[in-house]
C-alpha cells in the first residue's frame, strides 16, 4: 500500500466527523435568537411610545387611552388584547394578579375587536385595566409594531418602551423578568 492510499483511507475515516462539523455550524446558526419568534427584539425598545389617542370601548364608561397617559411619570404595563385571542384568555389571570396584588398600573388596548364582544369578555373575566383604548382598525397596533396577540409592553417613567413580550405572559416570565423589571424601573 502506498502512503497516498494510507492517507486516503485516513481521510475516509475523517469524513463523518467533517460532515458533522458542517452540520453543527448550521445548527448553531439555526439557534440564533433572531429566528426565535418568542424572543423578539423590538425596534421599539427604548423609543418613546408612539403618538396615539384612542376612545374607550364603545358602550363602556371610563376614559380612553392616549400617549399622554403614558408620560405621567409612572411605570405602566400596556397590554394588547382581544376577545378572539385564546392565549389572552389564559393570560388574563396573570394580568389580574399583577393589577390587584402587585398594584401595577395596567392599561389595555383592545385590538381589532367588536365592542360588544370585548365588553362581554371583560364582564366574564374581570377588568384589570385602569384605562382601555379601543383600537378597532388596528392602526395603533401597527404603530406599536404589534404582529400578534397578546403582546405586552412595559413603559418607564419617562414614557419610553423598555420591554416587549410577544405572546402570553407565563409564570416564569412574570417572576423572572417582568416583576424584577417593574421593581427596577419604579425605584
Amino acid at each position: 500500500m502506498t502512503t497516498g492510499m494510507v492517507i486516503g483511507r485516513r481521510l475516509a475515516y475523517l469524513a463523518p466527523l467533517a460532515i458533522f462539523g458542517i452540520l453543527a455550524v448550521y445548527f448553531a446558526w439555526g439557534l440564533n435568537p433572531d429566528r426565535d419568534p418568542r424572543a423578539l427584539p423590538s425596534v421599539m425598545i427604548d423609543q418613546p411610545v408612539p403618538e396615539f389617542a384612542l376612545p374607550p370601548i364603545a358602550g363602556m364608561d371610563g376614559p380612553g387611552l392616549s400617549a399622554a397617559d403614558l408620560r405621567t411619570g409612572e411605570v405602566t404595563l400596556v397590554n394588547f388584547f382581544a376577545s378572539w385571542c385564546v392565549p389572552c384568555r389564559l393570560e388574563h389571570r396573570v394580568l389580574i394578579e399583577l393589577a390587584t396584588q402587585d398594584k401595577v398600573r395596567l392599561f389595555g388596548i383592545n385590538y381589532k375587536n367588536k365592542p360588544e364582544e370585548a365588553r362581554a369578555w371583560l364582564a366574564e373575566l374581570g377588568n384589570p385595566y385602569g384605562r382601555i383604548g379601543a383600537d378597532t382598525t388596528g392602526r395603533v397596533g401597527i404603530d406599536w409594531g404589534v404582529y400578534g396577540l397578546p403582546e405586552t409592553f412595559i413603559i418607564d417613567r419617562s414614557g419610553r418602551i423598555r420591554y416587549r413580550r410577544a405572546g402570553q405572559i407565563d409564570q416564569q416570565t412574570l417572576n423572572e423578568t417582568i416583576r424584577p423589571l417593574i421593581r427596577e424601573l419604579s425605584q
Partner: peptide
C-alpha cells in the same frame, strides 16, 4: 415549547457526544 438556552445546551451535548465519538472513530477505526 422552545427555548434557545436549552437548544444551546443540547447543541453542546451533541457536539461533545457526536463530535467526540467521531474523532475517536477517525483515530482508532483504521
Amino acid at each position: 415549547a422552545t427555548d434557545p438556552e436549552r437548544g444551546l445546551f443540547i447543541l453542546l451535548l451533541l457536539c461533545v457526544t457526536i463530535g467526540g465519538s467521531l474523532i475517536l472513530f477517525a483515530i482508532r477505526a483504521p
